[in-house]
Design a protein around this nucleic acid. Structure first.
Lengths: 160, 160
DNA sequence: GTATCTGCAAACCCTTTGCAATAAG
DNA sequence: CTTATTGCAAAGGGTTTGCAGATAC
């Protein structure tokens, strides 16, 4: 019931993260991990950030308010992936990029080779292809990834 | 007209690589690069190897007959990608894996999480999805990648 | 002959890890 | 209290790069 939820004009939207944060805390406790302020700060900043990010961006973002060492970020990422909060999405310039997954629908990516921005889309046929091919090959699938690369509309215009 | 072309019993099949090698040499000359024995040895060993590989495997394979330094392999890979001979396929355990692309039809991958083997398949819908989404998003696409991960049939059987 | 390429070793850079101090439960 | 977690700094490990000698053309 938050009016700010989709208002980009609000610099620090007071999105209600309680459900997601509880899910993450629950995951930690269930698995014998501790709920620390560092892990909460990391998870919170990711939950506020629907976009793609890398470790450096996260580190710099956190540094302003709740400094957390890169070591702790690197140690937290596998936990967040295991908890279903995060997913690795792709490698660029030799380092990994992640995205928030929890509470979002599965989607694929368009990657611009010029400006390196990522655009998202959904295509229901992809799940069908996954199922059909897996059946044909006797594979027990657990997921799929589809990516298109090329030039986004802005970069096409720029290069004319 | 080589009888050995598809005969796995022949250890070192005398496949006719002249067409592919000529294409690569042509690429080098056209772009002002030199045709060296190292580049020829690298390209030849890849053309004989239709499977996926990484730099270390290539290095060890070459060492037996025509030793080439890793530095030269790393320097040759971008050229081979640019020439359309190779493509990066995926990252595993922190290092990149490649596959031969030249003269082969486009395909996608099934990746077994247990044995780490890669299986290939073709699905024509994927190209259609690429076109449709690109049109919708005003994107000028240059390629796509689709991957399914899970357990291959052998590993499912093993784990029962 | 001249400019590119090679091999070697060092540098890079992202990520992981050992360790002593700190904090969660 | 006990054990997990943190931050720091050092180590790892794949990839890149500077440089002097070798080689393609």
């Amino acid at each position: 019931m938050s009016e700010d939820r989709n208002n980009p004009a609000v610099a620090e939207p007071s999105v209600d993260l309680s459900e997601e944060m509880d899910a993450f805390r629950g995951f930690l406790k269930t698995h014998g991990y501790r709920v620390t302020k560092e892990r909460e700060a990391i998870a919170e900043s990711i939950l506020k950030n629907h976009d793609h990010f890398d470790v450096d961006e996260l580190f710099l973002y956190l540094r302003a308010k709740t400094p957390v060492s890169k070591a702790s970020i690197y140690r937290a990422i596998p936990l967040m992936i295991e908890s279903g909060l995060l997913a690795e999405v792709y490698l660029e310039n030799g380092h990994m990029h992640y995205e928030r997954v929890y509470g979002r629908e599965h989607h694929s990516h368009l990657r611009c080779l010029n400006c390196h921005r990522i655009f998202e889309f959904s295509a229901p046929e992809l799940g069908q292809v996954e199922k059909r091919i897996s059946r044909q090959e006797g594979f027990k699938s657990e997921g799929h990834k589809f990516e298109i690369w090329g030039l986004c509309s802005a970069c096409q215009a720029e290069k004319r």
